[in-house]
Amino acid sequence: MICIDLEASGLASDSYPIEIAWACAETGRNDSFLINPESVPGWTYWDEFAEELHGIEPELLQQEGIDADEACRRLNKALKGEEVISDAFDYDGFWLRRLYQAVGMQPSFRLVGLDAVLSGEQHIQYQFIARTQFRRHRAMRDVEDLISAIRTVLYESP
């Protein structure tokens, strides 16, 4: 089970991914990185409310972020052929498409939603658990919370 989370410059149609993290629940393999929006022409939209949530400032992205093409290569190498789970499939899918389209590449993995691992009743249980978690809106911490909630539903629920 591999889970992914993305943080973005906002929620508008002009938004773009600024942080990506993924982790494999079984092996512990993981990766997390920031993306420098200056590497993509036109990635200028910035929502200060989103910044307040995730705490990632544009200056940090410029200093520590990798280029968008490197982000795609890194994801493709690590996740090739895998199904990768997102608890925010529509948003994460949108931002992954923006990322890959920006550099003219295709993902080597398949993004899936929670329904790929949870049944209808389990999905409801997941929602209850997720609401009790304090999401910090940093990608790796949110991936860890996602894995924890899925494990609770799959292995610890009656």
Rank of each mutant, 00 (worst) to 15 (best):
L114A: 04
L99A: 05
L75T: 09
P107H: 01
L61F: 03
H137N: 08
L111K: 04
R110N: 12
E52V: 09
P107Y: 01
G55N: 07
R135G: 12
F128G: 12
E59T: 11
Y126A: 00
L111S: 04
L60C: 01
V112E: 12
E82F: 00
E70K: 13
R74K: 13
V112M: 04
R98N: 10
F109D: 04
E121M: 10
V117D: 04
G113Q: 06
E121R: 10
H54Y: 01
E83V: 07
S119W: 06
R135A: 10
A71D: 14
D115G: 12
F49H: 11
Q62K: 14
N76I: 14
G120Y: 02
C72D: 11
E83Y: 11
I85L: 07
F49R: 13
Q101I: 04
I56C: 00
P58K: 02
V112K: 04
A102V: 00
V112Q: 06
Y100E: 14
R110K: 15
Q127W: 04
H137W: 05
A78T: 12
R110C: 13
Y91K: 08
Q122R: 13
A78Q: 10
F134I: 08
N76K: 02
H137R: 01
Q125G: 12
Q122L: 01
R97A: 08
L61G: 03
G104I: 04
E52T: 14
A116N: 08
R110V: 15
Q122D: 01
L53W: 11
F94W: 02
R135L: 10
E64I: 07
I85S: 02
S108W: 08
R138T: 10
V103Q: 07
I66Q: 03
L75I: 05
F94R: 15
A102L: 01
Q125E: 15
H137F: 07
V112A: 09
A130G: 09
D69C: 08
D90R: 10
A130W: 03
D69N: 06
F134L: 08
A71E: 12
F128Y: 09
R74L: 11
F128A: 09
I66R: 06
E82M: 14
M105I: 04
Q106I: 13
F128H: 12
V112C: 10
N76R: 02
S108Y: 09
G93M: 06
K77E: 07
D90F: 07
D69S: 11
A116F: 12
E51W: 01
Q62L: 11
H54K: 03
N76A: 09
Q122H: 07
R97W: 00
F128N: 09
A116P: 03
E64W: 01
C72G: 15
V112T: 08
E70V: 13
I124G: 00
D90C: 01
E59G: 13
P58W: 01
A102P: 00
V112I: 05
A71N: 13
R110Q: 15
I129Q: 00
A116R: 09
R135P: 11
L60W: 10
D115C: 11
G55L: 02
E70Y: 06
I56W: 00
I56S: 03
L79D: 10
N76T: 13
L61N: 04
T132N: 14
E59P: 00
E64V: 10
F109T: 09
G113Y: 08
E59S: 09
K80F: 08
F109L: 11
Y100R: 06
D92K: 02
R131D: 00
Q101L: 08
